[in-house]
Design a protein around this nucleic acid. Structure first.
Lengths: 202, 202
DNA sequence: AAAAATATGTTATTTTAGTAACATAATAAT
DNA sequence: ATTATTATGTTACTAAAATAACATATTTTT
């Protein structure tokens, strides 16, 4: 487990707490969270302590206070601009991903090489990839989603590095690495194959 | 680390070896794989040994032999039918996901509630969700991708369980659990937030 | 043919993530 | 008011995953 896994766990807490809050809960116990997330109560308490979240010795944790603290720790309290590089089917789908808005993530532009797709007049403008580096610099873009064909992935990575992007969510099947940029690889093919393994071997 | 992480590592080996093979490599050393995958050479050797993959004491591993063995272990040598539940933007994008064909994964149908989307004549037919359970039973479907809105997720899970699905790749933001079905959650929002955390805090 | 080099196979060690256990504090009950 | 209860905060422990180390086998070189 890397440090990342702890962050994912924090995000799970957050999502679950938001859900509990929305149905009227105010307080929560480490046992509640542990049960639904399939972890031990002591791990919940340990995580909360590490991030400076404190509860009452008998009354559990106040959901609202925990959520504020988690958002603070995660840095999600601000707006974040993101661009989508590759306006194919998946890229276009992600441009309208409903989960982004409520998290304060704003898709500010898309990029592609296909002249058919380029259009600066749509709600989310789509520019030619040759303008990628400039756009990133001019608009101070730090986040990108990469949804180009595999053979274009490395080239786009270079351009984004030069532009100054700091984090990339990579949907291509190319496992990308970089010393300058944080990259999260989401390999859909691998997820399916993992599932196939699970259902056939276990 | 669960048993799953080892499977993901095997998939990484596989992808990398396929790439090396495609550019003409025949043999590979544990060091080569370890370097590109950011793990230690001894872990590569340990993994290979566990899966019955053996190399030559000096000559390294024969790529082709390793690939055959990995595919055997993963069970990817067969064809697998899959359905996509939810024919929204992401669902439709995944229907034509290029990575599936080469892995022997066949998208056999889509499901939605919107009458506008239902069409049995397209290359991949889209049926109404009320036919979901029946279709799964009649066609012996074991795998599904879930791309419906969050509030519809639980209901679809029930139907798929009844039908007899064994594995679900869940793209909804609802963290699903089941005792009957293996579920892989892919939470795009979480991936972005993780990235935001990484670039702001580290 | 003998010696040197090198990459595997395997064991020992280290690291770390997660759980279990318990003492403490706060609340509730009598 | 006193006692019992209960959930936190923290420490100790366990489990297991990854690395490091090394002995062995094979190949290459001289």
């Amino acid at each position: 487990m890397g440090a990342d896994d702890k962050v994912y766990r924090l995000l799970n807490y957050k999502n679950l707490l938001n859900r509990l809050k929305s149905i009227g809960f105010v307080k929560v116990f480490s046992d509640n969270l542990a049960d639904t997330l399939d972890i031990s109560p002591s791990l919940v308490r340990k995580d909360f302590r590490e991030f400076g979240i404190r509860g009452a010795q008998k009354g559990g944790y106040t959901i609202e206070a925990v959520l504020i603290k988690i958002n603070e720790v995660l840095g999600i309290d601000k707006k974040h601009k993101i661009i989508i590089v590759g306006a194919g089917r998946i890229g276009q789908a992600l441009m309208h991903f409903p989960g982004f808005r409520k998290e304060g993530i704003i898709v500010s532009a898309g990029f592609d090489t296909d002249p058919e797709k380029i259009d600066g007049q749509t709600d989310i403008p789509i520019f030619h990839i040759k303008e990628l580096t400039d756009y990133i610099k001019k608009n101070n873009i730090k986040l990108a989603i990469l949804t180009v064909p595999e053979n274009a992935a490395m080239g786009c990575l270079d351009m984004m590095e030069v532009g100054g992007v700091k984090g990339i969510l990579n949907f291509t099947s190319m496992n990308l690495k970089s010393l300058k940029v944080a990259i999260n690889n989401v390999n859909i093919g691998n997820e399916i194959e993992n599932l196939i393994f699970t259902i056939t071997k276990k």
